[in-house]
């Protein structure tokens, strides 16, 4: 190896190879972007309510306790399929009512149980959040999670 692989050869392989992989990666990213918009998330419109819900999700940093499509903090349940788990994925009004009931009953105050803080949200915020979670739930995630437990 010593004679064949000189320092300058190693450097050239590094630069050339990296550019090669960046090009492939960018190409696949472009394709994936189109796929997300046209296929995997196309089952439900990206409505104003969904976008509002995403903002509510972000402003309250839900991700730092919960996980969404498996990404997040693992301190609280997975929410990518919570609407399916609650059996309200196909019923927007039930989704809103159930979520509102849940949020307004927190914190439970039960000793020894993880506490979700009380978030003061308007009905529109909660409706948006419910729509956002239904929107996430309908995304084609290649069959993940394995079951309704999330």
């Amino acid at each position: 190896m010593a004679e064949f692989l000189t320092k300058s050869r190693a450097r050239n392989i590094f630069y050339g190879g990296s550019i090669f992989f960046v090009v492939i990666f960018v190409g696949m990213t472009v394709h994936s972007h189109k796929y997300v918009v046209e296929v995997s998330t196309a089952g439900m419109p990206l409505s104003d309510a969904v976008i509002r819900g995403k903002h509510v999700w972000e402003e309250n940093s839900c991700i730092n306790c919960h996980s969404l499509h498996g990404e997040g903090a693992y301190f609280a349940p997975e929410l990518g399929n919570v609407m399916t788990r609650w059996g309200v994925q196909d019923y927007p009004e039930d989704a809103f009512e159930t979520l509102k009931g849940w949020i307004e009953s927190q914190p439970s105050g039960i000793e020894g149980r993880r506490q979700m803080p009380r978030y003061e949200l308007t009905d529109e915020d909660i409706r948006g959040l419910a729509e956002f979670l239904r929107w996430a739930d309908q995304t084609d995630t290649q069959g993940w999670p394995p079951n309704d437990a999330g």
């Binding site: 320092k7 990296s18 696949m28 290649q142």
Partner: peptide
């Protein structure tokens, strides 16, 4: 140079291991 070459050659497309279940293509 050898170390960083293997880091980028594997790491760039290795990003794919985060793309399994978030709504991206199956490939």
């Amino acid at each position: 140079y050898v170390i960083v070459a293997t880091a980028l050659f594997s790491g760039i497309l290795g990003t794919g291991h985060h793309f399994y279940w978030i709504g991206l293509p199956g490939y």
